[in-house]
């Protein structure tokens, strides 16, 4: 799914974005608030949905190879998290929609989870 489609179905706000990335294709998503778990299972180039807004989310994304993070339930991170993301070239979004519905809406729109991706 194109990043701009994700932004539109989640009615998300862009906190910071890497130039020319609106048209980039994202093939899978996962949602979690525990960063060690994210580090344990996340695959590179995943959309990460999370309710956690600490700078460690950005470090987790950087180390795990995640380029786009969307905060759910309208939680906006502090400026330092956004500044860090800009430096690390990670796109940050925020949607007012809670985690459950965010997953549901993206899933319904065809963005796959890991078990489906691995079947392909």
């Amino acid at each position: 799914m194109k990043l701009d489609k994700i932004i539109s179905v989640l009615d998300a706000e862009i906190l910071c974005i890497v130039k020319n990335k609106l048209n980039s294709d994202i093939t899978k998503a996962c949602g979690a608030d525990l960063m060690s778990d994210v580090l344990a299972f996340v695959q590179p180039d995943t959309l990460l949905l999370t309710g956690l807004t600490t700078p460690q989310v950005v470090y987790t994304a950087e180390n795990a190879g995640v380029n786009v993070v969307c905060f759910v339930r309208g939680k906006k991170p502090h400026k330092e998290t956004v500044d860090l993301a800009k430096e690390k070239k990670i796109t940050l979004l925020v949607t007012k929609i809670p985690m459950f519905e965010s997953c549901g809406i993206l899933y319904k729109n065809g963005l796959m989870g890991y078990s489906e991706i691995s079947k392909q």
Binding site: D33, L34, M35, S36, D37, L39, A40, T50, L52, T54, Q56, V57
Partner: peptide, 8 residues
Amino acid sequence: LGFGAGMG
């Protein structure tokens, strides 16, 4: 803070 769930 999203850590300390025994996965580290």
